[in-house]
Amino acid sequence: MDLSQIPLFAMLRGRLGYLSQRQQVVAENVANSDTPGFAPKDLKPFSFQAQMQAQARSAASVTHPGHIPLSRSQGGAVSGWNPVTQRDSETSLDGNSVVLEEQMMKLSDARMNYDAAIGFYQKSLGLLRLATRAPGR
């Protein structure tokens, strides 16, 4: 059985994909911290409701066994977050509004959430292994 067919693992996979993409967006912000006129971007917060709607759309798109299912990159749970421009608290004279301290806080937040999701994923895998083990082993 594919783990992505289990809703819990599909949600965790979506969350990990979101956090990975957020880390990339924040890294781009930091890389452009000296670019005149650059406005930092961030992803909209991860929401359970949006994740469920994305999975319902991808599941509902296959209505016949002969249809080809959409891949995750074509509208599934993993790719669906578009960066939006969000100015930080300060703007320099050259128009750049990246504040490195705020970006480092976002990066740290993404890292902590990623570590928590990985820990939950590993614990869930451990429970599945325990459930599939023969009694008395």
Results as ranks from 00 to 15, higher is better:
Asp2Trp: 03
Asp2Met: 12
Ser4Phe: 12
Ser4Lys: 02
Ile6Ala: 02
Phe9Glu: 06
Ala10His: 08
Ala10Ile: 00
Ala10Cys: 07
Ala10Val: 01
Met11Gly: 12
Gly14Asn: 05
Leu16Tyr: 10
Tyr18Glu: 01
Tyr18His: 08
Leu19Phe: 08
Gln21Asp: 07
Gln23Leu: 03
Gln24Ile: 14
Ala27Glu: 02
Glu28Cys: 03
Glu28Trp: 10
Asn29Ile: 10
Val30Thr: 02
Val30Pro: 02
Asp34Lys: 10
Pro36Glu: 04
Pro36Trp: 07
Pro36Tyr: 04
Pro36Phe: 04
Gly37Glu: 11
Phe38Ile: 09
Phe38Gln: 10
Ala39Val: 15
Pro40Gln: 04
Lys41Met: 09
Asp42Ile: 02
Asp42Glu: 04
Pro45Thr: 07
Ser47Asn: 05
Phe48Val: 14
Phe48Ser: 06
Ala50Glu: 03
Gln51Phe: 04
Gln51Cys: 03
Ala56Cys: 03
Ala56Thr: 05
Arg57Glu: 14
Arg57Cys: 09
Arg57Met: 15
Ser58Leu: 11
Ala59Lys: 13
Ala59Val: 02
Ala59Glu: 14
Ala60Lys: 04
Ser61Gln: 11
Val62Arg: 12
His67Trp: 09
His67Asn: 11
Pro69Asn: 09
Gly75Val: 13
Gly75Leu: 10
Gly75Arg: 01
Gly76Ile: 13
Val78Glu: 09
Ser79Val: 14
Ser79Asn: 10
Ser79His: 13
Gly80Thr: 10
Trp81Thr: 00
Trp81Lys: 10
Asn82Phe: 03
Pro83Phe: 06
Val84Cys: 02
Thr85Ala: 15
Ser89Asp: 01
Gly95Thr: 11
Asn96Pro: 07
Ser97Ala: 04
Leu100Asn: 05
Glu101Thr: 14
Glu101Gln: 11
Gln103Pro: 02
Met104Gln: 05
Met105Ile: 15
Leu107Cys: 02
Ser108Leu: 03
Ala110Leu: 06
Ala110Phe: 08
Arg111Gln: 15
Asn113Cys: 07
Ala116Asn: 01
Ala116Ser: 13
Ile118Gly: 00
Gly119Lys: 05
Gln122Val: 15
Lys123Ser: 09
Lys123Thr: 14
Gly126Tyr: 11
Gly126Met: 11
Gly126Asp: 09
Arg129Pro: 08
Arg129Ala: 07
Arg129Val: 00
Thr132Ile: 01
Thr132Asp: 14
Arg133Gln: 11
Ala134Val: 02
Ala134Phe: 03
Ala134Pro: 10
Pro135Met: 04
Pro135Ala: 08
Gly136Lys: 05
Arg137Val: 13
